[in-house]
Design a protein around this nucleic acid. Structure first.
Lengths: 340, 340
DNA sequence: CTGAAAGCGCTAACAG
DNA sequence: CTGTTAGCGCTTTCAG
């Protein structure tokens, strides 16, 4: 089918190994010889067979990316960051959507290991059985985990500072003068989300004034946010602001508020988390905590590409993006009807 | 490093080839022998080396997906559809983001061919030089193109019925009684977008009443839509509806309209194209033409997996999703202030 | 049913 | 600087 190095060598009148050396651009071959080989390779449209090379070198120059779903804009960004970094380093990325299903996850991992990827980037490993986790660790393939605090086994991690993000949100709302805040927290037991909650509570507790908080849990999706908010509103709770633990929830919250005849930010201030692209597109533009998604993917990939065996942990900074979904209840801005 | 078949064979006291046969579940090996081999393989945690296998079989069970950018929700959906289909068939997918840059595209293609992927799913090939296109075709690797009308070389294609989608949009707006419509058409020379335009014009021209249309071109993005609309509004054009050739443009249009003090759909009806997830989340929920994105990816993958050498062309149906961004100017619904 | 042997395309010592 | 020689781990004839 495809032309092989052997044919190139024969055509160029040199030995197989000489041809091989010529292509690797290392020294140890006469310039004229190399030129000849290269010319022939070009003419024959030769392309080295990476699988053959991989077999002998033991490196595939391929990496695995296991995430829950690329359709989630967060992961799409991460994937892009990871892919760009891989591309720059001459690696290819195999995309796997696990839906967080442990069986599917293991299936992918097995497949990836079987194809001898040089490393794995995964967004979670917590759902795997202890045995599987150990098997994974034993495989010896470098692994970096996304979005997990550095407490996992011996794996490297790359994550945003979720605690700090939650803290920023709480501090912001408290400073605007909100004294009764609802926090839509997503599922329990979701380490990076609970970190946000912890940061938020910390900020609110350390605020100069007294702030009351009601925390509700639910699905971390548009629908989940919508439902949590509906329920909250039905209970006639008095609160002037909500901190949603991600943007999707915030969007659902806005929808539910609008449907209940509340204005945002007039009656209700809302801050989200993630800063997905849509948050600047919807109305009102959402004030949210930006998480450096692309950089997260890139940073994770960089760690992976180092191929060191000592686990490395990278935590990226977050930032509050002030838009138009919050209003100040105190201070000079309070009259204006909008935050800041 | 990893345990090899040879070790399994030795441990099981059989020959290498017997071990190999045992694993392939084909007949030709005594049941007891196979059981023994399987047991040993399990115990040793043996996993076949796919690269070695690939070298001899000539098939890598890996496919390439070259799209412009996964961060584009349209492609994320397509990618997911393709990946699911690949997964179901036991294939892995290598993700490549080309940004539509011909050089990057060729780089990826080269890399993919070098790793001997069994097929390629690409979203465009039009920017490649004639020579590169021919080289691609000559490589003999099965290729299916996304979103391209079936006029390309000998490649298979999978695309939505863009013409029909444009037609549906035009027909819908005309029926609602709109007689002056702006069409935000995206860049010229973008085959699937121009198909939408053609369908739209066809519908409008064949409408019973006279409908005037102004077509404007620009970037097919939120920003592009925003700018096109600003310009249009500045020219004091009189139109009651706009058909945006994709949802991103529609979102930009809505933003620009809102900023200009126009209400949607009160003063202006807007229909988009794509039905990305956000279109149901924004306010007002966008009436748009649904393109079966996930199915597109899956269909393309199915064609690819057939590995036939006769090009196949699949065109998927589209559907108008009526939400709340349009209003009727005639008929009983006109009073209600909303379409239907 | 099982073993022996060749070879996929390439790299990497090792001689020369 | 260049050629010879082993394999990498696996599948696949071909004998037995």
């Amino acid at each position: 089918m495809a032309v092989t190095l052997k044919e190139v060598a024969r055509e160029a009148g040199v030995n197989l190994s000489t041809a091989s050396r010529s292509l690797h651009a290392t020294y140890g071959v006469h310039t004229a010889t190399r030129a000849r080989v290269l010319a022939v390779a070009e003419r024959l449209n030769y392309h080295p067979n990476r699988v053959a090379r991989g077999l002998v070198t033991g490196r595939s120059h391929t990496l695995g990316l296991v995430i829950s779903d690329v359709r989630n804009p967060f992961f799409a960004e991460v994937a892009r960051g990871a892919e760009d970094a891989a591309y720059a380093a001459g690696y290819d990325l195999v995309l796997c959507n696990s839906d967080l299903d442990p069986a599917k996850q293991m299936h992918y991992i097995r497949s990836l290991l079987a194809m001898r990827v040089d490393g794995l980037l995964m967004n979670s490993v917590g759902d795997l059985s202890r045995a599987d986790q150990e098997k994974l660790a034993a495989a010896g393939t470098p692994i970096v985990l996304l979005n997990r605090s550095p407490k996992n086994l011996g794996f490297s991690t790359a994550t945003a500072d979720n605690f700090q993000g939650g803290f920023l949100a709480g501090q912001y709302l408290a400073r605007l003068g909100h004294r009764a805040i609802a926090h839509l927290a997503g599922p329990r037991q979701h380490s990076n989300l609970t970190d946000r909650t912890r940061g938020f509570l910390k900020a609110v507790q350390s605020a100069p004034a007294n702030v009351s908080v009601v925390v509700v849990h639910g699905e971390h999706s548009f629908q989940g946010g919508y439902e949590m908010m509906k329920k909250l509103l039905a209970r006639h709770r008095k609160f002037t602001a909500v901190f949603a633990c991600n943007d999707a929830i915030a969007f659902g919250t806005i929808r539910a508020s609008l449907e209940a005849g509340l204005s945002v930010p007039g009656d209700l201030s809302i801050v989200g988390f993630d800063n997905v692209e849509v948050s600047s597109i919807i109305h009102p533009p959402l004030t949210t905590v930006d998480q450096p998604k692309y950089e997260l993917g890139r940073a994770a990939m960089e760690i992976l590409l180092k191929r060191t065996n000592v686990p490395e942990h990278r935590m990226l900074g977050v930032e509050l993006i002030e838009r138009q979904s919050c209003r100040a209840l105190v201070g000079p801005a309070a009259q204006a009807g909008k935050g800041k």
